[in-house]
Design a protein around this nucleic acid. Sequence first.
DNA 1: GCCGTTTTCGGCCCGACTGTTTTCAGTCG
Length: 594
Amino acid sequence: MENVEIAHILGKYADLLEIQGEGLFRVLAYRKAARTLESLSQQVAQLLAEGKDLEELPGIGKSMAGHIQEIIKTGTLKGLKKLRKEIPTTLDELLEIEGLGPKRTKQLYEQLGISSIKELERALDSDKVDSLRGFGQKSVEKIRQAIQNLGKRPKRFKLLDADQLVRPLIEYLRKGGNIEQLEVAGSYRRRMETVGDIDILAASDNPQPVMQRFQSYPEVERVVAAGATRGTVILRSGLQVDLRILPRRSYGSALHYFTGSKAHNVAVRKLGVERGLRVSEYGVFRVPEGKRAEDVGVEEGERIGGAKEEDVFRAVNMDSVPPELREDRGEIQAAQKHKLPDLIVLEDIRGDLHMHSKWTDGNGTIIEMARACKERGYQYCAITDHSKAVRVAGGLSAEDFKRQREEIEDARTKVLGITIFTGCEVDILPDGSLDLPDDVLEQLDVVVAAVHAKMDMTQSEMTKRVLKALAHPAITILAHPTGRLINHREPFAIDLEEIFHAAKRTQVVVELDAQPDRLDLNDLHLFRAREIGVKIAINTDAHSTGQLRFMRYGIDQARRGWLEKRHVLNAMAQPQLEMWLKQRRQRFDKAAAL
DNA sequence: GCCGTTTTCGGCCCGACTGTTTTCAGTCG
């Protein structure tokens, strides 16, 4: 059973407990445990099998560990079944409705017997709902609207799409003036592969005109909320944008706060509390003696800092944590011990080892691709067109690759100052064999192997298939290992843990495909690959010269996976890489001789 | 339900906005 499935059950249980009126902290404990599971880089079922103690995980104690074991064993929770008998199973779907939380959901159920969205809609049409205490005509209208909006807007936006929507908005806000500093925070700043909404932070002494301008941005479809310092709008694209405006003295602490993640913030604030500090978006303050926390004003007490983000980290004795790491996945402890990783940056990349040309489904010629790589400052690139099994892409035969080699040799004489490697993206066929004969493969500098068809195998079949391919001595890189397309196609079933161990044994490099809709491997996979000691190649899989810029998204994802320059194959300088590839060929020759 | 060299009991991050409320609860991030 997958961690996310277990987390989902725990989360569901928390929802129902909350509706039932269970103490909030017990509810939060289940949510925290769910979050912990979601951010593990290994399957919890496997940790158990290895005899690991789950109670060592944050937010998981004796009884939670028991719950988790029960879910793995039985697929569900007894307590959840019991709750389901007391509360209609459809009740938690009401929580999906914007503006409806546990309290009002409970009220609707207990006082009107409403337990599904359908029943709620009927009740809204009569005047039953607005006669309830706490509900008025406006609430009824808002709920009605929220039901209509359900499922209408995309749940999460790919980072590339968010980039394109955010850039003009930022420009528009800046042009309006009255802004001293402006930044996009939230999951966007943490460079998550997808973002649910956009959080913009501005420093201003005159917030009113800024908020005004924000609401009148031409792309705004509707204004959800607009206060003095905080506003929320939905753009025509469906993207929700929050703007928060604070004075400059609070900008750093606010940036930290709104960058999140929530789990990271909770952990940092807790460290603050232990030191008698109050950490909020307004700054870091020493809590005045003898006052109850709830009686203290937001800016009361001695101000320790807040203008700069570093102030927050310094106040709790930590090194500054790069946004990409702020997920409470160990970065707090690492920052306290001065052991944060030295994360890879775009400038560390020396070349791109997976791209297509006009020979198959790419738009650029070999010369154009090589030239574009050179312009990016790369020392090398590899042309890796599809093999014949990928019919739709016009995959090449063994004969085609021999002819392509002549063109590459010609390009080498025309584009100087960059090494152009020969290569291919060879299909891993359903039986695990490769789609090109060995004598072709052994002539190529870089062999990228990937699954493109028959992705509906069982996990054990798919794992066997890829393991067989990994055992082939010709393979340099395993490309997009899970085959997922964000928001479009689920990853195929495969046991990556086993794949990583095999890749480490056979010294096959595993790819992080930087296409914004692939980003395959994901951050947790990368973290685990790093732990196991697998080398990673960050490649764009570019199908045009323009797509070479996707390297940036690969770097973002790699940083989220704690990768450093030393973990990345194509951060190697050209001579070292040539040496590395040479050793690989020797291994191939040795295997062939056996 | 979790957690702890100040605690094994009593805390648990902190604040804005909205609507309905005559002073605050609910929801959200």
